[in-house]
Design a protein around this nucleic acid. Structure first.
Lengths: 182, 182
DNA sequence: TCGAGCATGTAACAAGTTACATGATTTC
DNA sequence: GAAATCATGTAACTTGTTACATGCTCGA
């Protein structure tokens, strides 16, 4: 995970480890945290495997700059093109970097995720209506109020995610259409 | 985390490790995963510390039943009463178990979280309007489409969470009012 | 009787955090 | 000149997963 974030951020240009952390906080910081204790070892690993090159700037601060190699770029793009899965918010990380991915793969993966989400939502709605009916027959249903609320959260969360996806897919289509006209 | 989930689920009655996993999947499974490799060692730890008691049922399946001790109950309730923080979805886990918490603490923690969220949203809206303006002055703004989309996701996510919170706070107030009338 | 599922457990590994160490530079 | 922040790094620890091992039971 850390390694992929590093590669993704370095796709925009060379940076020091220190800068990578700062940029990460300002961009993907909302859903991914990185500490120096994982960052620096990851940079060493990436350099050892040839995915990035380490460059000593002998400037005043003794910084080291890192840049992706073509091998590293291929590795990153291979990861980026994989199907989107909602596990552990990795899909958000992928979509964050989607400007680097080709349009057809992008569209395919996004609509696939949208459909998967749609199925999950339908399933959850079915489960919830059953639960709701069972609950109505209990006298002590107030005792399950928060458990049920968190179940509702799940549904609202999935719906929000689906709507967001639908929006970005629609806007991308519109964007492409406009650009073709120019 | 695993230990807390176990304690929380056991608050509803004694269960085997195997059952704990099944119940967890059906309830908190959406945002928390547990494997046997973490579950069983956690049960041993909890038993060693006196937070649960292990009871050998010498039934056909050679099951072991676990139940919370009063010490374990205190530990769980202490955790449950802590302020809600959105980190790592721990707040969802807490709220899931909120039926076990007293109403005043519940209300206090929920409204505190609501206010914190409200501040985050205001802050994000400010940041986004600045970013949006800067973006409008670029010719290649399509190259940042997905990065910006994920930023929008953040805002939508926070808003959804706030609205959900507002709803459950309002409904709880209504619930209390109705019960007082009886 | 055979396979699915019940039931418990461990060892090796993975991935990351926390706390510490060190030193230079910039800013007030 | 002191404090903040730039800059890099390591060692110990935490937490969890994966893969394996083992054996029992229940229904088709």
């Amino acid at each position: 995970m850390v390694e992929i974030v590093i590669l993704g951020l370095l796709m925009q240009g060379k940076m020091s480890g220190y800068d990578i952390k700062k940029v990460a906080e300002q961009s993907v910081g909302l859903f991914i945290k990185m500490s120096y204790g994982s960052l620096y070892p990851a940079l060493k690993r990436l350099a050892g495997e040839g995915d990035v090159i380490e460059e000593d700037t002998n400037d005043a601060k003794n910084r080291k700059l890192y840049a992706v190699t073509e091998q590293g770029g291929r590795r990153f793009l291979a990861w980026l093109g994989e199907p989107l899965q909602t596990n552990k918010r990795e899909h958000l990380l992928k979509i964050f970097f989607y400007d680097h991915l080709d349009e057809p793969t992008r569209k395919r993966n996004l609509t696939n995720l949208e459909q998967t989400l749609q199925r999950s939502i339908a399933e959850m709605e079915a489960v919830q209506s059953v639960v709701e009916k069972e609950l109505d027959q209990l006298e002590d249903k107030d005792d399950y109020y928060y458990r049920v609320s968190v179940m509702h959260y799940g549904l609202q969360f999935f719906r929000m995610e689906r709507e967001w996806l639908t929006q970005i897919i629609a806007k991308e289509a519109f964007k492409n259409e406009s650009n073709r006209r120019l």
